[in-house]
Design a protein around this nucleic acid. Structure first.
Lengths: 260, 260
DNA sequence: CCCAATTTGTTCGTATGTATC
DNA sequence: AGATACATACGAACAAATTGG
């Protein structure tokens, strides 16, 4: 943040608009001071004075940061603009926008899942407590019976994606966790909007269930390589089945999370 | 986009500010019409009229979309607000914000790289033309000589990250491409900010070079499994070396007075 | 329950900057 | 160079939300 009443010092490399410059300056200021989520930024009035700019300009700057999920503002006494930790939903939505004009195929997504999911499984082997194992088993129980209609089949498929999301949540690796949940969501967007799901198939259901139970067993017993291998086989199988339904990922902007 | 002069129809789930609602409405409008990059949105004046809102409100809405990389505005005649394809840099920056308060360790990043990079190598085996192979060889040539100073070592390390980024660029899988480049960039951010790089080590240099040349050979000959295996070994080796460096650095910075 | 203070949110009128013809 | 069309910025006033008395 520049000293009071100067609008110089706003490093303007390439014809950036004033709100953009101000947003950058605020971001730098937050970094330099090591501000944490919940910390309050100067009030709008303060910013107007310090940057010597009009209210609208300052507001646009704050909007930029807000759109990126970096700050949050509240009205009223004790209100103001606050540093905010970017939520996972927001980050996923923003990254999803990147792929809006870059059609991803089922193959593209599964190539990444096939690489990441086995590592996740391996990293969790022997590290889950009873509560976590129970939560996983509860999700698996949701498809204890083979689907009889396409709607049930679709619901089970989405449940199995939830299984992977839940597993990811148990990882201590924030990057791996985010990527696995992101890819699973991209995939579930495809199946929902394109109504892309397999017709009821008892044999498929049986093999899927088989993978899940073998995975849970390996996780419980701490069999790292076993968990990895089971998950890898599971992914290859799922990929093969989905490839049959090959379709382009729907073009759709992911909604931002409304409020935290 | 709502019909002219109505501000109803703005689906407001949970207390979103008007600019946010307008931004969402514009986004929906772009989706519904299937607008493409370069297509022009209604002028600011049009938007003011159609949404029946003040200039400032509309401008904040446009800023939100601009901050997300979805639109771009130009002044002057023929100017206006245009649909824009989110750039890779922008997407990477926005995703990077997500990890600002979620410190990633070297281990976290390498776990993902170890999973993804071998798949990239496998997918490219036998699919690169002469020009692409030449480009890769040119980058490798940049560290033809072992580094003699820590600065040279660091420069070579960054060059090798560029090698991976270049390789990623050749993938037809937009998701894999993005993720590999993103992880490589995160890694170089971490190593730079923590000044985390190995001291000159001819043996390390030799093994790194060995991996690269074996990888290029496998890529040229179309040896899919060979490329995957070489890259996997390369990643494991790099991970091991970086982990040692990280441990060394943190040890060096251990406080002498009991502070964290 | 109402009132007052505080802070962000919205509006309008006007002026300036910028690119095209 | 001048006219035109567009975004950009300013400033003052008013509205809404939240907190505390």
């Amino acid at each position: 943040m520049p000293p009071a009443t100067t609008r110089s010092e706003l490093r303007n490399g390439g014809r950036r608009s004033r709100p953009q410059q101000v947003a950058e300056a605020i971001k730098d200021w937050v970094m330099e001071r090591g501000l944490q989520p919940g910390d309050r930024l100067p009030s709008e009035a303060d910013l107007i004075e310090r940057f010597a700019m009009a209210k609208g300009t300052i507001r646009e700057a704050v909007r930029i940061l807000e759109a990126q999920g970096l700050v949050k503002s509240r009205t009223g006494p004790g209100g103001g603009v606050f540093v905010h930790q970017v939520s996972e939903d927001r980050a996923a939505a923003l990254l999803g926008n990147y792929f809006y004009f870059r059609q991803l195929s089922i193959d593209d997504i599964y190539t990444v899942r096939e690489a990441l999911e086995p590592e996740l499984a391996a990293s969790l082997a022997g590290r889950l407590d009873a509560g976590q194992m129970a939560a996983l088993e509860a999700v698996v129980a949701r498809y204890a019976e083979p689907a009889r209609t396409p709607e049930e089949e679709r619901a089970q498929h989405l449940d199995s994606l939830r299984f992977h999301a839940l597993l990811a949540e148990m990882s201590g690796n924030a990057l791996l966790r985010f990527l696995i949940r992101f890819t699973a969501n991209m995939l579930s967007d495809v199946t929902v909007s394109r109504q892309l799901y397999a017709p009821p198939n008892p044999e498929l259901w049986k093999s899927g269930r088989d993978y899940q139970s073998r995975l849970l067993a390996a996780l419980r017993s701490g069999d790292r390589d076993g968990a990895r291998a089971v998950m890898a086989a599971h992914m290859r199988n799922a990929h093969r089945l989905m490839r049959a339904q090959e379709a382009a990922v729907t073009r759709r902007f992911l909604p931002e999370d409304g409020m935290i």
